[in-house]
Amino acid sequence: MTQNLPHNILALVLAQFGYTREECNISLLGNGLINHTYLVQTQHKTFVLQCLNQQVFTGPEQVTDNVDLISEHLLTQSSNKNYALMPIWQLRSQNNKNHVKIQGQYWRALHYIEDCYTLESITTSEQASFVGNAFAQFTNALGNFNSQKLADIIPQFHDLSTRITQLNQAVKKTSNTLLLQAHSNINFIKSQKNFIDEITAITKNLPLRVTHNDTKINNLLFSNKTNRPIAVVDLDTCMAGYLMHDFGDMVRSCCASIAEDSAELDKMSINIDILTALTKAYIAGFNGTLAKVEINSLLLGIKLMPLMLGIRFLTDFLNGDNYFKTRYATHNLVRAENQLHLYKLFCQQESLLADIVLSTSRTTA
C-alpha cells in the first residue's frame, strides 16, 4: 500500500523518529483529499505518519507550529476539565522537532488513539447531536486562545471574494474545452451577487475565533466502547475565522443525502432531522455565549459553504486539478455541480432553515 513511496525515503523518515523500516508495518490511513497519511505499527508503538502537501500548505512549518499551539492549549483545557474530548498532539523527532524534512518533503508523526473508528456519513439524529456538540466543544475550548497567534496557513481560505477572484483568473487562463464544460456553472455563480454582498456585509461585524475549517464527520474519532466522539482531528487548517464557516461546512457535509462527488443530483435531498439535531447540539455546545450576530451568521453559513466549495472545485477543474485529488478527468466538475445543487436546495429551504436556527438559539439562550 506504500508502493508509491520509495523504500529509502520511508527508511530515512522513520529513522528521524527512532525507527527502522524493517520493524514497522505501514498501511494507508483515511481518505483525505490533501495529505498522504499512513498508519505505522511496531511491536511497542502505533502512530500516524504524514507527508504534508506543499502545493496546499506552502508553509508546512507553520502548519506544524500551529498544531502544537492548539494541542498545548487543549491539553491544558483538558487538564482543567474544560475540554471533555481527547487532544491530539504531534510526536517529536530525534532532534526534538515537530517535523522532519527529507528530500524536500515535510513529514510529521502524530499521536494515535486506540480503540476508535471514523464515520463517512451520519445516519441518525443521535449521531448528528454528537457531531454538533463535539465541534462546538472544540471551538468553545479555544475561546480563550488568541487566534492571532496562529499563522494564516492558507490566506483568505474562506474568503468568498477571494475565491471568486481565483475563479475569474482560472476562467481567463483555462482551455476552451474546459471552459465550455464549466460554462453554465460559471454563469450561475455570477448570478449570486446579492448573496455574495450579504456575506461581505456580515463579516464586517463577526468576531474572530479559532476555527477548525474542515468540520466533516470523518475528522472526528468515535469510541468503540461508547460510539461517541472522543477527539477532533486534522488540525492543519485551524486558523482565525468565523463560526459560520465551521457550522456551514458541518451542515454541508452531513446533511446531504448523497456524497459530495455523486453525479446523481436528482437523488439529492436535505435531511432536515439531522440538520435540526446538528444545529441544536452545536448552539447548545457554546453554553449561551454566542453573540446575536454569530447566531444570525449560522444561517448564512449553511448556504455559503456549499457555494464556496462549489467555486473551489470548479476553479481547480479549470486549473487542471492541482489542489484536490481526483480519480477521473471531470471529477472536480462533478463535485462542483454537486455542491452548487446543494446550495440551491438550501436556498429553496431558507425559511425552514431560519426557523430551525433562530428557534434553537432562543431555547438555548
Rank of each mutant, 00 (worst) to 15 (best):
I283F: 05
A284N: 15
G285T: 04
F286D: 08
F286G: 06
F286W: 10
F286A: 08
N287E: 14
L290D: 01
A291I: 08
K292R: 12
E294S: 10
E294V: 08
I295K: 04
S297Q: 10
S297R: 11
L300C: 14
L300Y: 12
L300Q: 12
I302F: 10
K303G: 08
M305F: 07
P306W: 01
P306Y: 01
L307V: 06
L307K: 00
M308C: 05
M308K: 05
L309M: 13
G310K: 00
I311T: 00
I311L: 03
R312C: 03
R312G: 03
T315E: 03
T315Y: 03
T315M: 01
T315Q: 03
T315D: 03
F317C: 07
L318P: 01
L318V: 07
L318S: 07
N319E: 10
N319Q: 13
N319R: 09
D321S: 13
N322G: 13
N322W: 07
N322L: 11
K325A: 12
T326P: 02
T326G: 05
T326S: 07
Y328N: 11
Y328H: 14
A329P: 13
T330N: 15
H331T: 02
H331M: 01
H331D: 02
H331R: 03
N332R: 02
N332H: 04
N332S: 10
L333C: 09
V334A: 00
V334H: 00
V334E: 01
R335C: 09
A336F: 01
E337T: 07
N338L: 04
L340W: 00
H341Q: 09
H341W: 07
Y343P: 04
Y343D: 03
Y343T: 06
K344L: 12
K344S: 15
L345W: 06
F346Q: 09
C347A: 15
Q348D: 11
Q348P: 05
Q348F: 10
Q349R: 15
Q349H: 11
Q349V: 07
Q349D: 14
E350Y: 11
L352N: 04
L352R: 05
L352A: 11
L352E: 12
L353A: 13
A354V: 07
A354D: 13
A354Y: 14
A354S: 15
I356C: 06
I356F: 03
